Simulated assay, not measured.
Amino acid sequence: MSKAFTRESDQDDDDLPEGVAPIPKGSPNYITPAGFARLQAELRELTRVERPKVVEVVSWAAGNGDRSENGDYIYGKKRLREIDRRIRFLTKRVEAARVVDPAAQTNQDQVFFGATVTYATSKGAERTITIVGIDEADMTKGRVSWIAPIARALMKAAEGDEVPFRAPGGPETLEVVEIRYIPVD
């Protein structure tokens, strides 16, 4: 059967890039103002700059005749599909976004979205993480998603609290050393 007659899936996960977690069902896409601005900027760049350039190349290549051996046409169409998929993904994420400014947090005594938390492990190591949106997570910068197990374990904890955490190496107890709410860039 031709691809033209198959029905595409309506699942949101179809447009997820590799390694990106889906938003939990029924939850908004919590995101910081800086993260939201980055998503919007990428979406704007793709729709206003990159996609029109690729469409122009594909149109030019299509006018050159035989499309079966036309590299510009073949690779342009492939790139166009990649761009369209990313645009669909970004559009869904932006529409589901709920922007939360960490600096506006009123209850700064507990860990909530946007908190920068310093905690000590039961082995004595201290680590600092910032709880951010799914699309902003970057362990190299100490940013973890609010749906990550470590973030869920620390949620609603106060300074001095000890919270249980099921780490890959076995159960641990984490002690909250410091909680700060600073703007995430």
Rank of each mutant, 00 (worst) to 15 (best):
V20A: 13
R51D: 11
V20Q: 11
A61I: 03
E50A: 07
A41Y: 04
G63D: 14
A21D: 15
R48Y: 06
F5K: 09
P22I: 09
P28W: 04
Q11A: 11
Q11N: 06
I23N: 00
P52V: 07
D12C: 01
Y30L: 15
D12E: 13
V57Q: 14
G35P: 02
V57G: 03
S9H: 06
P33G: 04
A41W: 03
Y30G: 01
A4C: 06
R67L: 14
T32V: 03
R44L: 07
D15F: 08
K25H: 06
R38T: 08
G71R: 11
E50S: 07
A4V: 04
N64M: 15
T47N: 11
L46A: 05
F36E: 13
P33Y: 05
E56Q: 12
Q40R: 14
V49K: 13
V58E: 04
D12T: 05
N70W: 03
G71P: 00
N64I: 00
L39S: 04
T6H: 12
W60P: 01
G65A: 11
G65V: 05
E50V: 14
P22S: 14
L46F: 05
A21C: 09
G65L: 06
G63E: 15
Q11M: 04
A61V: 01
P22M: 12
Q11W: 00
F36V: 02
E69D: 13
G63W: 05
D14S: 00
A62V: 02
A37D: 14
N70K: 03
N70E: 10
A61H: 03
N70M: 06
I23R: 02
V20T: 12
T47C: 07
A4L: 13
N64A: 15
K53D: 10
P28H: 11
E69N: 14
A37S: 14
E69G: 11
P17N: 08
R67S: 07
V20D: 06
V20L: 10
I23T: 12
V57K: 15
T32R: 02
R38L: 12
S27D: 11
R7C: 00
L43W: 12
N29R: 01
G19V: 01
G26I: 02
N70S: 07
A62S: 14
D14A: 05
